[in-house]
Design a protein around this nucleic acid. Structure first.
Lengths: 110, 110
DNA sequence: TATATTAATCGTAATATTGCAATATATAAA
DNA sequence: TTTATATATTGCAATATTACGATTAATATA
């Protein structure tokens, strides 16, 4: 065990869960927030920005890249990162679909 | 290590990351989706609904409860669960604040 | 009271995540 | 070509998560 039973859930459920998981670390939230603010920045800026070792930042960047949330472009010796805007909108829509379904405040229970 | 450096990030960043983490498992997404659909249900219904053992479902429910996303009310021998609607709206707002900040599609890089 | 029924908790095994030092890789500058 | 700079990758230790059987606790029913 220790292994999520992925095959037991729908593709949409897994997708959303994986996106949520990618955002499920304060460093990755901080990276996204920074990129949203500055629009574009070089990897080294993020290493300076965050109180984590370079290797750790690189790992978080990879996770965000794997989920398609950010893109990286090589520019000489450095790598320029930014949000993948089209993807970002789709991600937003996926979260919205869940979050906007606000249930009726229920007196039945709770 | 293996321990998130929580103190290095803002409270807001940690809050959002923890919320995202709570949603970062397909079973917990499924639980939330089910509760949004039926508004209110008994724990046993969720155990039937999900392809997981009772103990596992209970554990996922506890995580959602810890983050305040759901509430549970004892009703005889069973426990009635539902979304915490006021909390849910605040959670939605926290995600929105991040997700709605869509950066300008940039030609600078990426 | 004895026995179900329901859900939480405990204990444990398997796996995943986090973080970092060390190293590798790749390009730029001297 | 050598050296510096910027990132990625590897390897590893510490901790967290996932899953489940077994047990416990609490209420209902016979």
């Amino acid at each position: 065990m220790g292994l999520t039973k992925t095959e037991a859930f729908t593709e949409q459920q897994n997708e959303l869960a994986n996106l949520a998981k990618a955002l499920g670390h304060p460093a990755r939230i901080a990276i996204i927030e920074h990129l949203l603010k500055v629009n574009t920045c070089v990897c080294g800026d993020l290493v300076d920005e965050l109180p984590l070792a370079q290797a750790t930042v690189s790992q978080h960047l990879r996770e965000l890249k794997t989920m398609g949330l950010i893109k990286g472009n090589i520019e000489g010796t450095s790598v320029c990162y930014c949000i993948d805007t089209t993807r970002w909108q789709k991600v937003r829509d996926q979260f919205m679909r869940l979050l906007n379904q606000c249930c009726i405040p229920n007196d039945t229970c709770c």
